[in-house]
Nucleic acid binder design. Structure first.
Lengths: 224, 224
DNA sequence: GGGAATATTCCC
DNA sequence: GGGAATATTCCC
């Protein structure tokens, strides 16, 4: 809505017939010419701007997206040597209504980037926190790996112990069967005194204790 | 080394005796006064700057760290009503050598902050990576906790099984002692045939298998 | 041409 | 006073 001062001044300047000798519309009305750079800078620029440098004028044109029109005969001798031509899509003769679409380039930072302003100590704090998380994750990974090895060894130990217990129980059963066969066939037990019971019924206790832990590990380990 | 144009112009301007009626050193030489703002802006400023606004002049003073000196009698009637006084540590009469230490404030961002320019997709990538690390760490923590519980249950199981094995072995030993006593006292074994050995020497196997895992867990678990 | 520092303006 | 946009300068 609000057209920058440079654009309105430029349009007024190009439209002004009194300065057509130094700056004027192209015959097409879609671009404009600057004829005599020296005189234009010295006599015209100070009337509109706070300087008399053609370079500053061109800098502004570039800031607003104007492009320099290159003539066909570049290096060859042309009728007018001191002739520059500039154009912009929305800078046209008798079309002041288009000027509002001419936008100044935002200079800060590359296009497509966003500024993130942080205090240096905040920056270092965040960086340290990320490193802390990474260190802790490394420790966790190591601990997890160690614990997993220990766990596997424990599972093997439990399996081995259960197997040994089972075999031992079979031995106990065989011994008892043997004793029973002795008693049944020879009645050898007659007259012997037992000080206390032998407590041979361990198997039932073992079965109940096994229910406290799962039969297989529910944990899965993925390398991180 | 290179003193900004504003500072050199300002110092020249204050030193200049011809303008002392409008701008001049304080008697101490450590600050300067601007007497008649209206005349100063209209007659003096354009001689040194590209404008005639006292506001722009003061804006520059603030940009370079000058401070306004407040008079003792603020609201009361003073001899000179249109009198402003400014000072800067390194702006003193006859001390042009100090001017190089007057630094312009960098406008972009708050003081003590540093610009970090990133493309939005890079910003989101980094953010996602941090969240990935945090998620993975949560998973690791959960897995580690589960595995630790399972590990503790396994240790209890192993201890329980070892105890049972020990008791079972004692039973086996007592049975064997009992059989031996039977054989020794009554010679009841005579004439009986054993099909295969009873394999009662399980205890030695158990001892060797225990060496495969440590007696106590070397792992320590800290909550994260 | 355009990045970046300084200058000027505008506005809270 | 100072943030921020625009203007001017300086420099590659």
């Amino acid at each position: 809505m609000t057209v920058p001062a440079f654009i309105t001044k430029l349009w007024t300047l190009v439209e002004d017939f009194s300065t057509d000798e130094l700056i004027a519309w192209d015959s097409t009305g879609l671009s404009f010419h600057v004829l005599d750079q020296g005189r234009f800078a010295k006599d015209v620029l100070p009337l509109y701007f706070k300087h008399n440098n053609i370079a500053s004028f061109i800098r502004q044109l570039n800031m607003y997206g104007f492009r320099k029109i290159l003539n066909i005969e570049q290096g060859s001798l042309k009728s007018e040597r001191d002739d520059m031509e500039f154009a912009h899509q929305f800078f046209q003769r008798d079309r002041e209504d288009l000027l509002e679409f001419i936008k100044r380039k935002v200079s800060h930072g590359k296009a497509g980037e966003v500024d993130v302003k942080v205090r240096p100590d905040t920056f270092h704090t965040v960086l340290n926190e990320v490193h802390d998380v990474q260190d802790k994750q490394d420790q966790l990974t190591t601990s997890l790996s160690s614990l997993k090895c220990e766990n596997e060894a424990l599972w093997r130990e439990v399996a081995s112990l259960r197997q040994k217990h089972h075999k031992q129980q079979q031995i106990v059963n065989k011994l008892i069967q043997f004793l029973v066969s002795l008693v049944g066939s020879k009645h050898a037990m007659a007259g012997m005194k037992r000080k206390r019971p032998l407590m041979l019924n361990d198997a039932s206790q073992l079965e109940t204790s096994q229910a406290k832990i799962p039969k297989t590990s529910e944990f899965t380990f993925d390398q991180v």
